[in-house]
């Protein structure tokens, strides 16, 4: 054995080279190891967990209910959820129009929600339900009412129709609507009766409500001062005073035409 001398030991340059290679290998292995270690450490530390969740745009329902619906909990891993899956889940809520879920920095999640707008209130036996612009009636008590009141619109299909019509009415007219009452008579056409804030009553057909009601300001502009009555918008547009319509029947009551040719 003593005679055998490793060739590398005899040639110093070779030895040097070999050492370098070993070093490089070692560093590479170390890096891999450290990366693994870092990942391990990260996944164990609080920096991989959700620290705060912000909810923007929650009006109809509170933030908490959206948090609950999203299924996100502070302390969950930042990698345990998929943004689009959460978006989908929140979008399934009938009162949500749009939603975006974003990760913010290391540990933050931001949920921005656009709810459907408020349109009015559905009158139930002794309570009111908020009605949104997609026709959905929110199932929770309403604290304050600041919009028109819908009666007999329990049927979602008809309600959606109404909401679509109201979306097309000009805002000054919309602000004037106090109540919309659907006729309960069984007919093919849905007749509605509206009570306006100014004391007039409007009779019209649901499918042409917006189109006709937008003439309302022109109609009342032609009425004599403080004259109140029924504006019939079912076919044309007529005004008849309450006396004529609801008073005792008189002979020869004639319609007063509002729209000139």
């Amino acid at each position: 054995m003593d005679k055998v001398i490793d060739i590398e030991e005899r040639i110093p340059t070779l030895r040097e080279r070999r050492k370098k290679r070993t070093n490089r290998k070692f560093v590479a292995l170390l890096v891999i190891f450290l990366v693994f270690l870092a990942i391990l450490y990260y996944s164990q530390s609080r920096y991989s967990e959700i620290q705060d969740i912000t909810v923007k745009g929650a009006v109809v329902y509170e933030k908490e209910s959206y948090l609950k619906a999203s299924g996100l909990v502070v302390g969950n891993s930042m990698w345990s959820f998929n943004e689009s899956a959460i978006e989908e889940r929140l979008n399934d809520l009938e009162w949500v129009d749009e939603v975006t879920v974003k990760k913010k920095w290391l540990t933050g999640v931001e949920i921005s929600i656009v709810e459907f707008g408020k349109v009015g209130y559905l009158e139930r036996e002794n309570s009111y339900q908020l009605v949104l612009s997609n026709g959905y009636a929110v199932e929770k008590p309403v604290p304050a009412i600041d919009g028109p009141i819908f009666t007999n619109f329990e049927d979602e299909k008809v309600r959606t129709q109404l909401v679509a019509q109201l979306a097309d009415t000009n805002s000054e007219v919309f602000n004037l609507i106090s109540q919309v009452i659907l006729s309960t008579e069984e007919t093919d056409t849905s007749y509605v009766r509206l009570y306006m804030n100014d004391g007039n009553e409007v009779h019209t057909i649901l499918s042409t409500l917006a189109e006709k009601l937008n003439y309302y300001p022109s109609v009342i502009a032609q009425l004599k001062d403080s004259q109140k009555g029924v504006i019939d918008m079912e076919v044309g547009i007529f005004f008849r005073s309450y006396d004529d319509v609801y008073g005792p029947s008189k002979e020869g009551v004639e319609d007063e035409e509002i729209t000139p040719e």
């Binding site: 022109s218 502009a221 547009i237 729209t259 000139p260």
Partner: peptide
């Protein structure tokens, strides 16, 4: 139903 040049409130 289209009224022309109507006065409006």
């Amino acid at each position: 139903i289209e009224p022309e040049d109507m006065e409006t409130a």
